[in-house]
Every structure is written in C-alpha cells, then in structure tokens.
Design a binder for these strands. Structure first.
Length: 649
RNA sequence: GGGCCCGUAGCCUAGUUUGGAUAAGGCGCCGGCCUUCGGAGCCGGAGACCGGGGGUUCAAAUCCCCUCGGGCCCGCCA
C-alpha cells in the first residue's frame, strides 16, 4: 500500500464523508461549497470545516448544533483513515487522523517512492521556457542580480519535477549602447588579456570607460545649456557631473594604470560619442569588425558567468544571443508587421508604440489588473538613427520563445514591469494575443545595500563571487573549529556546500515580492541561516541510519504514539501538497520554509526520543523508518531549491 | 503628478491569492540541558493593539475605501 499523496487520501476521505452527511441531512440548495482547512493546532485535528457558520445563516440555526449533528452522522459511517470526527468551538467540525494506519501509509509510501516522493505529476505536462539571469555581459553578476538565477533555477527545478518539459534560457543582451561602450574601451586598450576573472576585468574597463564618456557628454551638454541660458538645466547637469567626478576619483585611485591609459585614449578621440554610436550601428548591421570586437568582450564576460553559476549548480539549455534576432531579421520583420497595425505612430524620426490604444482596443486593462483611467505610456521602438531599443528586440525574442514553447516564464526584476507590460500589449497588437496569455513575468523585488544604491554602471556593487567566496571562507572556519579532525580536502568540500547553500537559502527564503536588504550578517551568520541547519539535520538522520545494524525489519507503526512523532508523520504527508502549491503558484520559498520546519520537528524528536535503543524492537524499527522518511523528504526538498543534502558534514 | 510593490515583537521573516479557533518561526535577550543515536542541537521565559482610520461580515493580518511611511517605474538606457 503506497500513495504519492498520503494527506490527499485523508483529505478525500473527509470530503466524501462530509458530503455524504450533508446530502443526507439537508436540502441541496442550502449546502455551501465544501472546503476543508488546516486547523491552527493539532488538538483540533488534522482537517477541519467551518461550513456550519454559513449553513447556520441559511437555516437560521446555531452553528454548534449543526456541527454536532453532522459530526454524529459521520461518526456512524464507515471510515479507514479517520479516527474520529468531532464538533468543536463555536461550530467547527474537526477530523482526527487514525495515526496507526496513517503512519503506515505515509512512511511506507515515502520509503517506497524514495527519490520521487512528493513530486506529484501534473495531468497535462507543458513545454515551458524559463528565461532567467540574463545579466548583461558588461560586468560581473552582482549581489543585487543574484536573486534572479537562484529563483529562476529553483522554479525550473520545481516545474521539471512537476512533470513539465523545461528548457532554461539565458538571453545574452549584446546589442545596445552599453555593449558598444565596453567594446570601445576594450578596443582602445588594445584588447588586453584579462587579469583575473574575465567578467571582473571587463567590469572594470566598462565602469572606467562609461565614466569617462559620461563626463565628456555632460560637459558638452552643460556648455550647450549655458549658451542658450538654460540655467536650471545646467545646474542639474553639473550635479550629475559632480557625481561622476567623484566616481572618477575613486576609479583612478583603485585602477591608476587602466584609468590613465583609457583617459589618454578617450582624449585622443575627437568624438568618442560618435565612435560609440557608430559601433552600435555597425553591430546591428552585422558588420564584421564590430561583430568581432563586441562578441569577444561578451564571450569573456559569459565565461566568467558560467564559472560563477556552475559553482552553484546552475546551467542553461540555451544561450540566446540578442544580436542573432537582429541579424536574422526577426526584429525587422516584427517591426514591419507592427508598423502595419494602427498602434505605431511617428514622433519626429522616432517610432512609438501606442500601448494605451492597444490595451483599450483589446479591452485588456481589467485582465491585466490595471485601472481603466490609468494611461499606459507609449514605448519607443526605433531611435531617430534607425537603431532599435531593448524592448523592441525583446518583442521579436518573445515571439520566438512562444513559438517554441507553450508557456514562457521570464524571471525579471519588478523594475521592468512597465516594459514587460508594453511588450505583452505589442504581442496582442501583432495578433499573438492567445500566446501572450502564456507569457508570465515572474517579478521579484530588489536586493539593496543598507548604505548605498548598487549601480553597475557606476561600478558600485558587491559581486556575487565575492559573496560566495566570503560565505565559503566563513564556512571553512566554522568547519575547522567544529570538526578539526577532518582532512583539509574534506573541510574544503564541506565549506563549499555549506557556504553556497547558505547564500542560496538566504536569497530564496524570502517571498520574491519583498525587498531584501543585503547584509553580510544575513547571509553569513550560520547560527541564523537555515540552510546549514537543514543540511546538518539531514546529516544527523543519515548518521542514525548508518549506525543501524539493518533496515527496519518489522516496524509496528501503531507504536509511534508521541505527539512529536505524529507531527512529523503529518508534516511528511503534506509534502506533496506543499510541492503542488509551490509549483502551481511559483513559490520556491514555500519549499525552503517547509524544509526548515521539518528540520525543526526532527531535531525535537531527535532530542526527546531514542531510535536505535528504543524498546521493543518493533518501536525501534518504526522510528528508524520515521528517520529514514524524514531524511528522504529533507533531501527531496533541498533538491528543489538546489541545495546539497550531505550525508556528513 | 500617475502607476506598481512593500509595511506583522528591538531586528529578520511566515501567514494575505481562497476571511475562520490562541497571529507562527528565527536572530537577539533572560533561565536551563555533557538525556543514549553528531551541541551547526534541545527545553523554558519575556517580547505584537498585524503602519493608522473607517467599512463589509456571525467572523478581518487576510476583502473594500481613505490615509501615512519606504522602495521602484513613467528614457531615442537596459
């Protein structure tokens, strides 16, 4: 006897009995929809219904009386998984589980299904593209961006286990002004070979170059503004310039050689702005020289990204280059089609998309959760010089993705909500409305630093590599004090999965819609961070199993009578429902929370009750099965969020 | 000015989609545990008018309206 969803079996039985009782007692019309809820405490049973409150209103009777009648009716019926049904409180009906039978079902199911326990498959699997990370190849991945790969990877893992066919995509944003700027700087330096990690090296060049370029640009604009005596405007620009000047001082101090060389080179160029724009135009055209230099820079960066991401077990099925969509005319064709719709208008030499009109014509505001009187800003599609903008190219890319898959989940920060909305509306305008419904913007809130705002353009950031390094280093010290007897190699290995696990957990445990303020304390304090705690708990369970002379031979599950044992069995039985919830609502944090709670309960059990030395042997065997099941569920849960479950640590 | 997101003990968070019983964890604080299988652990305690005000309801942290505080967006950046 085994079940992929043991708690579901209990739930079904309760529902069926409740329905039967209601049908026999009351008229169909007065019966409210049956919903069973999880009671706040185990003393109220494992499932409960509050429908008597509603029923009472309909019938003009007291809820408590109704609850008693229903409970009595059910009690006279036949049931298997239920121990008792009681009326309670002001009018609740509480269902209590028969733990003797239930423990048998739960523990046998977990141990039999093992690596598949909990992963209830969806009836209709779909082909889903999860696009995540997609950090621009200009600078290293910083901690503000690190929430993206971790969430994206967890979502992909969860949906895959749900039975969907998942393909993870990285969108390489190699087109645009910013890539032209870094390529410009790289070229001016004579294509230097990177010192250290390539993305870090590129990041430094990028910041210095864009700083120098911005200062040049601002100086000219200030001049212009003063010539036509726009004093207020000039003041504003001067403040911006001051900001960049202070950054220039920082950069010059940190990287004197690179800074001075780039400064000389930029000064020698009569019009750097023009050179950069030309490079950008040439790249969009697919001109060989531009291609060579920009691709070289981008590849250097991606090499660094792959290094970082593979360290934490994140890989991609596809690397999609934005430039390919330009060169292969996807963008051009999409633009041509879009121009034929009534939603594109000219503003000088600039092409604009009328998102507001599209939303109105297709009556999409209610469905998109927008107020009717909110006017959606228009989106610029093409610059005066004929080059395209990011979101324009993203329209073509989105169509490509939607052609390849039935559903597309884009993991993108919530600051891009408006652009994602405009993109979606453009798809409707193009006649892709049906497909656009399957385009999901998985938005997450920002990771910020308490002291200053991270900006990659200004080079003010903490890199993800730095965070991982610190975390692993700190874990190493921790391991060394706790287990000094281990070999150096072993210590390093443990430090690696503890440190990276802690970082992952810290970024995944919080609801993605909430902002996270990054502090070293938050990520590196292993006393408070739950990943090492859960890993430790798992290792503890493994340790007991190692010490057992044999697998449980004749467990007598009826002997598991302690409340904490019941709580663990119940919790384990609910893993499948938690998994479904996390998968259907894209909430990886539920898994993190679940694993932590299960670990808590297991540690309570561990401290209170003996396993191997328990008497009689049938009880010892039953507890051993409980330990084994907990081990399996902890491992399966950690696997969903990409955290290693170690046998020892 | 408009739009979106967030607000729960000193601090970090769960619970809000689908309203139900005593608002749940962790950190920190106070007091205990060499109890056998791993102390990255366990047990106990103090600590919250769920940002504020109205409303709907038998029932509101949860739904509606107003309001305050913080963040983000409204670019020929991405």
């Amino acid at each position: 006897m085994s079940s992929i969803n043991p708690f579901g079996e209990f739930r079904n039985e309760c529902e069926a009995l409740l329905k039967k009782a209601l049908d026999s007692l009351f008229h169909k019309a007065s019966i409210p929809k049956i919903v069973l809820e999880l009671p706040p405490s185990i003393e109220f049973g494992e499932l409960a219904s509050s429908l008597c409150f509603e029923l009472a209103k309909q019938l003009g009777e007291k809820p408590r009386g109704l609850a008693e009648r229903i409970a009595n009716t059910i009690s006279s019926m036949q049931f298997t998984m239920i121990k008792s049904v009681e009326a309670a409180g002001a009018g609740y009906i509480n269902f209590h589980i028969n733990y003797g039978k239930f423990a048998d079902l739960v523990l046998e199911s977990v141990r039999e299904l093992d690596e598949e326990y909990g992963f209830v498959k969806i009836e209709t699997p779909r082909k889903i593209i999860v696009e995540h990370t997609s950090v621009n190849p200009l600078h290293p991945i910083h901690i503000g961006q690190a929430r993206n790969p971790i969430l994206g990877d967890a979502i992909a893992r969860i949906l895959r286990k749900r039975g969907h066919v998942i393909s993870t995509h990285y969108y390489v944003d190699d087109v645009g002004r910013q890539t032209a700027i870094i390529a410009y700087g790289y070229q001016k330096l004579g294509k230097p070979r990177p010192k250290g990690k390539p993305d870090h090296f590129i990041g430094i060049i990028y910041t210095i170059t864009s700083c120098l370029i911005e200062m040049e640009r601002l100086k000219k604009e200030i001049e212009n503004a003063e010539n036509v005596s726009l004093n207020e405007e000039a003041e504003k620009l001067k403040r911006q310039l001051d900001d960049w000047l202070s950054i220039a001082v920082e950069l010059k101090e940190k990287y004197p050689k690179l800074f001075n060389r780039l400064l000389d080179e930029v000064k020698r160029d009569e019009n750097p702005e023009q050179t950069i724009n030309e490079l950008n135009r040439n790249y969009e055209k697919g001109e060989e020289k531009a291609k060579e230099i920009i691709r070289e820079v981008a590849e250097q960066c991606l090499k660094g990204f792959r290094e970082t991401l593979s360290r934490i077990g994140i890989f991609f099925d596809s690397w999609d280059w934005e430039s390919e969509f330009v060169w292969e005319s996807h963008v051009k064709k999409t633009m041509e089609k879009l121009r034929e719709t009534p939603y594109v208008f000219k503003c000088g030499n600039v092409l604009e998309f009328d998102a507001e009109k599209a939303a109105k014509d297709f009556n999409l505001k209610p469905a998109l959760g927008l107020k009717e009187d909110y006017e959606i800003p228009s989106l610029t599609l093409v610059r005066a010089d004929g080059t395209t903008l990011y979101t324009t190219r993203d329209i073509a890319y989105s169509i490509w993705k939607l052609d390849k898959a039935e559903k597309v989940i884009n993991v993108i920060g919530m600051e891009q909500s408006l652009a994602q909305l405009q993109l979606k509306l453009a798809l409707y305008a193009l006649g892709y409305g049906k497909k656009a419904e399957n385009l999901v913007h998985f938005a997450y809130n920002l990771v910020t630093l308490p002291s200053y705002k991270m900006t990659s353009r200004k080079g003010r950031y903490i890199t993800f590599d730095q965070v991982l390094e610190e975390a692993v280093e700190r874990a190493y010290k921790e391991v060394s004090t706790r287990s000094p007897h281990l070999s150096e190699e072993k210590k390093r290995e443990i430090a690696e999965f503890v440190g990276t696990g802690a970082v992952k957990y810290a970024l995944i445990e919080v609801d993605p819609s909430k902002p996270v303020i990054f502090t070293w304390e938050r990520v590196l304090n292993f006393e408070r961070n739950s990943a090492p705690y859960i890993q430790y708990t798992h290792a503890r369970a493994c340790s007991i199993i190692r010490k057992a002379t044999s697998p449980p031979k004749k467990p007598e599950y009826k002997l598991l009578k302690q409340p904490i044992e019941h709580e663990i069995i119940l919790m384990i039985s609910r893993f499948p429902e938690t998994f479904i919830d996390a998968a259907e609502n894209l909430k990886p944090n539920l898994i993190a929370e679940y694993a932590n709670l299960l670990a808590d309960k297991f540690n309570t059990f561990y401290n209170a009750l003996p396993v191997l030395k328990a008497q009689p042997p049938e009880l010892s065997d039953a507890r051993l099965a409980l330990v084994d099941a907990t081990r399996i569920v902890l491992r399966n849960a950690l696997g969903l969020i990409g955290v290693k479950a170690p046998q020892k640590m």
